[in-house]
Design a protein around this nucleic acid. Structure first.
Lengths: 140, 140
DNA sequence: TCTAAAACTGAAAACCGCTTTCACAATTTC
DNA sequence: GAAATTGTGAAAGCGGTTTTCAGTTTTAGA
């Protein structure tokens, strides 16, 4: 017996579990597939990472969760969908934070127009050192 | 006998070869390690990819070449260092183009200040479909 | 110039996240 | 119910990157 997602899609129950996990633990945090798998196992100890992998793909495609890809990070992270925002990636400790920033409206459209591009997504990523790492080892 | 790089660093000759390759073929193009290895072999058929790998790391660290990491692309690309600019990544054909755009000056500083971040780099990446792919398969 | 230390080299193996395959189980549809 | 579809977990495969190893070349210092 499958059930419907919040947007009316039919979702297997493992997929709904994954969705719940991301929404419960993804408040401002960014979860890797391994994290999500570990969390899902708490409710469903037999769930395999392959299922989590497929769930994340499906949920992303449906827009129920969002992929976070940060240049320089070697993994894909997942978060709850939110208004456009930038990401910060600490090169020392690897942490990823949300930044409340988005490109000036109009800029993307202007670029798209002049290059003939069909834009799906415009990403802003800032990399550097977070306050904690700054303090731990000031300047390298 | 080593020689000096343009900036006065001592560089093994294989590393200089890699540097030359990137600067000769990286005009507006983005080269993967495999490309660079293949090109370097023309002059130095015995050069191994490990050496190219190490050269690219060193040269990047010295700022003689620039790494291009694009979210969604599975590889690191290399280009000649240039003024800040954005990148476009075509999700259909994978091509990566330079875009003549940079974040409004002041924006990055403002973010850095309010979050206490030590910024090394601010990246703008736009993904979507390039004109060629648009035409080949309009809308999916 | 000779020599010990340091740096460089290429092949191969290890690594690591992601993706696919396989054989089987559960669910849905008719 | 039975057939077709969809979901499942383990395991194997894949591809770019990184490390290891044993050996060579280069450098620095007497």
């Amino acid at each position: 017996m499958h059930a419907l997602s919040p947007t009316g899609h039919r979702l297997p129950k493992n997929y709904r579990l994954v969705n719940d996990v991301v929404h419960e633990h993804g408040h401002g945090r960014h979860l890797a597939m391994a994290d999500i798998h570990a969390l899902a196992k708490r409710s469903q100890p037999t769930i395999g990472f392959t299922t989590v992998y497929r769930a994340l793909n499906r949920l992303s495609r449906l827009g129920l969760i969002a992929e976070v890809r940060v240049p320089g990070a070697d993994m894909t992270y997942y978060e709850t969908p939110a208004d456009p925002h930038a990401h910060f990636h600490c090169e020392s400790c690897g942490r990823i934070d949300d930044l409340d920033y988005h490109l000036p409206s109009g800029d993307v459209e202007r670029i798209a127009g002049s290059y003939g591009i069909d834009v799906r997504e415009a990403l802003v990523t800032i990399s550097g050192r977070c306050p904690a790492c700054r303090e731990a080892a000031p300047a390298t």
